[in-house]
Write a protein that binds this DNA or RNA. Structure first.
Lengths: 128, 128
DNA sequence: ATAAATGCAAAAGATTTGCTGAAAG
DNA sequence: CTTTCAGCAAATCTTTTGCATTTAT
């Protein structure tokens, strides 16, 4: 395996992700990181994002158009995606109890989970 | 509201989705539908897919690269995504109990849900 | 008739890849 | 030193959009 080197760009990208108020798209992440590192390139962001995900330090949330990335180790939360208007909301209660380390039948070691509920958001449920 | 018209292409697209052995990517869906309807265009597939999703007849599974689409009304199942090798597996037990129609705090009407577990698949868990 | 849907091609995006120079260990 | 990493630009690929024509109702 390759030893991951410590570079300024990886440091900055990870920091931006941790300080973000919510999940960011790759382009957004790039823009924010460029404030500190103007020459940062697109490819580096994607390559770093892939690395961080493999290390479990970040993960992608894919609901709508582009995937959004968020730092792991942030409050546990899930999403609600409206089937009608397409908007995505954050939910604060979690409908599953799967502590990290749980081993699923077959030998799947669970490190995390993501739940998305689909349906009608308050506005769209009303406007029928 | 607009009245959705019944067309041959929508019929074919829905049929392909229902007969598929698993979730399909948009390009795959297009290819299969073109067997029955050679002139079918890309745009129509995407437009129809969007429509079907709004009607709750289909939904997208977004785990890896491109989203995959599957017909609703198929056996309830979820996915396990390996943080290491990236492979995706199907799970047959469901860790949540959220019947359609459940109303979440805030007025969110649940029509469906999707759960993805992340971690190490049997192979990758072993090869440490 | 009228409005909605299709097909095609062009456009728009996001993500990936190849290659050369920079830099971490 | 040696190998990984960054930056840039070009290439890919999926999804969207504009527009003229066809088609369902």
């Amino acid at each position: 395996m390759t030893t991951a080197r410590h570079t300024r760009q990886r440091e900055v990208i990870a920091a931006v992700l941790q300080q973000a108020e919510g999940p960011l798209s790759a382009p957004e992440l790039l823009a924010r990181a460029q404030v500190a590192l103007p020459t940062l390139g697109t490819a580096t962001v994607y390559r770093t994002l892939k690395l961080l995900q493999q290390q479990g330090e970040a993960h992608a949330v894919k609901l709508d158009g582009e995937p959004l990335y968020e730092s792991s180790g942030r409050g546990h939360h899930h999403h609600f995606s409206c089937n009608v208007c397409g908007r995505v909301y954050s939910l604060h209660s979690c409908p599953v109890a799967l502590p990290s380390g749980t081993v699923y039948p077959g030998g799947f070691v669970v490190e995390g989970h993501e739940v998305t509920l689909y349906g009608r958001c308050p506005q769209c449920a009303e406007a029928r």
